[in-house]
Design a protein around this nucleic acid. Sequence first.
DNA 1: GTGAAAGCGCTAACAG
DNA 2: CTGTTAGCGCTTTCAC
Lengths: 341, 341
Amino acid sequence: MQKKSSATIYDVANRVGVSLATVSRVVNGNSNVRESTKRKVLDAIEELGYHPNAVARGLASKKTTTIGVVMPDVTDMYYSELARGIDDVANMYHYDVLLTNTDEDPVRETMAVNNLASKQVDGIIFMGNELDNEIINTIIGVDAPVVLAGSVDEAGKLPSVNINYIDAVKEATEAIIKNGHTRVALVTGPMTHAINRLHRLVGYKAALEEAGLEFDESLLFSAHQDYASGLQIAEKLFLAEASAAVTYDDEIALGIMNYMREHGKRIPEDFEIITANDTKFTIITRPQLTSIGQPKYDIGAVAMRMLTKLMNNEVIEETQVQLPHSLERRGTTINPNHVIQ
Amino acid sequence: MQKKSSATIYDVANRVGVSLATVSRVVNGNSNVRESTKRKVLDAIEELGYHPNAVARGLASKKTTTIGVVMPDVTDMYYSELARGIDDVANMYHYDVLLTNTDEDPVRETMAVNNLASKQVDGIIFMGNELDNEIINTIIGVDAPVVLAGSVDEAGKLPSVNINYIDAVKEATEAIIKNGHTRVALVTGPMTHAINRLHRLVGYKAALEEAGLEFDESLLFSAHQDYASGLQIAEKLFLAEASAAVTYDDEIALGIMNYMREHGKRIPEDFEIITANDTKFTIITRPQLTSIGQPKYDIGAVAMRMLTKLMNNEVIEETQVQLPHSLERRGTTINPNHVIQ
DNA sequence: GTGAAAGCGCTAACAG
DNA sequence: CTGTTAGCGCTTTCAC
C-alpha cells in the first residue's frame, strides 16, 4: 500500500531521450511530433505510470480546467438538480467542479466567489437570489466569467439562464383564478430579492389585474424554502381566508397541503395549490402537486454550456437565456379538462 | 467591468521594499515578522488588492487545500445530505471540495479518483458501493488518503464511516416480525455489493432465524434507488404474497407504498414498510414512513473530520467508525406502543 | 519535428 | 527578524 511519488514529465523525457517540450507536445495532443517518437513517449508514459500534474499545468498555462459552483444548499432538490445539469456538461467539456454551499448568506457568497477566484477557476456558475451590490461587485470584479443559473440580478445585466418567472407565475395564478378563486395567496421569498419583487410579484399582479381582481397585500407571504415554513404559512393562509395559493417552493407547498388537510380542508376541493419547482416531491405525494414545470437540469446544463463559451472568449448572441416553462396540472388543482389521473 | 490581472507577491514585496519571503510570511501568519513591517505589508496587500494564487501555492507547497468527493448522484437526497456534512466540516478546516457524480459506474468512479489525484487533492471522500477490485486498487494506489462515507468495502479494511447495517436491518426486520408477519420481503441493491450481501442480508437473515422463520429467497429483491423501481418491485411483492417489506431506499419505499394503496392495500394495516435512509421524504408523505434512522449529515461530517486527521498524518485510534442508528417509528408500521401521531 | 530556456507565483530551507 | 536561492512540474515562445 505504499504511495509511489509519481513520475514527472522530466522522468519520461529522460527515459525516452527527448526534451520536456516533446513530451509536453504528445501529452497535449500537439500534432508536431513524429509518429515514431510519439509512440516511444506514450510507451514511457505507460511504463512509468506518468500522470500530468494539473496544478503545475495550471500555473504554467493559467488554465485550471476547473470551474466553481456557488449554490445555496446541495440538499435542496431544486438546486441539486441544477447542479447535476452543470456537472454533466462540465464533465463533457473536461472541467471539474468546485462546489460551495452558502445557505444564501451574502457574506459567504462573497467569500466563496473570492475564494474560487484565488483558486484560479476558469469560470463560475452562481446560484442564489440574495444578489446585493457587494456580491454583484465581486462577481463583476472577478477575473473569470460568471453566469447565473436559476437566479436573476436586479439590473438583469449578468449572463444568466432562467425561465420567464413573470409569465410562469402569471399563468399559474390565472389557472387558479379561472377555477373561481378570488382570494389566491402568493408565497415567495423576501421582496428584497429581485426575483420576487420584479418577477414573481409582477406576474401575480398581472393575472389579478387581467381578471379584474384587487391586489390585497395581506395575501402576500414570504417564507423560507422548507417544509416547516410551509406549515407555518399554512396557518396564516387559513386566517387570511385564502382559498388557494401559488408558492415558489415544493417543500412549502407540501407543508401547506399537509396542514390544510389536517385541519379539515380537502385538496383541491377546498383549497388549491400550485407550486413551482416541479421536483420529485410533486410526484410522490398524494395528491400529486400541480406545479409550474421548469427544466431544472437544462437550466444548469445550458448555464454551463454558456460558461464554456465565455471561457473560450466566443461571441455569444444572447447572454440572458430564458428556457421554456409549462404548467403541470396534477392533483392539487381542479383541472378544467376532464383528466382522470 | 475590466478585469485587472491581480497583483503578485512580487508586486507587494516591491512596493514595501522587502523580500518575497517576508510577504509570504505575513500572508501565512508566520510569527517571525516585526510588527511594523507586517503592518506595511498588510497595507500594501490591501492597496494592491493582492490575493494569493492558490495554484502557485499548491505547486510550491504540495498542498492544495482541496479535497475530492466522489458520489453517485447529487440529486439523491441520501448522498446530498452526506455531502452537506462533508462540505461543512471541509470549510471549517478551510478545504474546498471538488465534486464528481458517478452514477455508481465503476469506470467513472475509477476515472474520478484518478482525475482527482492528478489535480493533487489532499484527500478524497468516496461514496458508492460498487467497490470492485479495480476501484479498490486505484483507491489504495492514490497518493492521498481516502475515506469511505456511507459505503463499505468487501474486506472492511479502508477507512470508513457508516452505521452498523447488520444491526439496523436486523432490528427493522424484527420489528416487523413482532407484528406477526411471516412473509417479510427485503429490498436492497445487487448482492454483488458487499453492503447488501455481507451486511443487510446478514441482518435480515439473523432476524428471521431468531424468530424461527425460514429464509425464502423469493422474498429478496434488488432494485435501483428510485421511485420507478419502487413501483416495479411493488408489483412483484404483491405476487410473492409478501405482507411487509424492509427497503434500503426511501424513494423505493414510496413507490411501494403508493402502488400498494392504489391496489387496495391499506398501509400499514395490510402492508407494513420500513425504509432506511430517513430523508425528508419520510416526513412529508401521508402516512409518514417508518425508517431506520441514520445520522446522514454526521456520517459525512465525521468522514471529513477523519480525513483531515489522515491528511495531517495524525494517528487515528479507529478508522472503521460506526455511528449510532435508530428506528423511527412512523405511519407505515403498526406500532406496539400506543403512539398516536 | 525537436530542443533550450524562461518563466507561471509561491514556499521553503538556509544564511545571516 | 529578514533576505537569497532554489525549485515545484509544466507550458510556451523562439531557435534550429
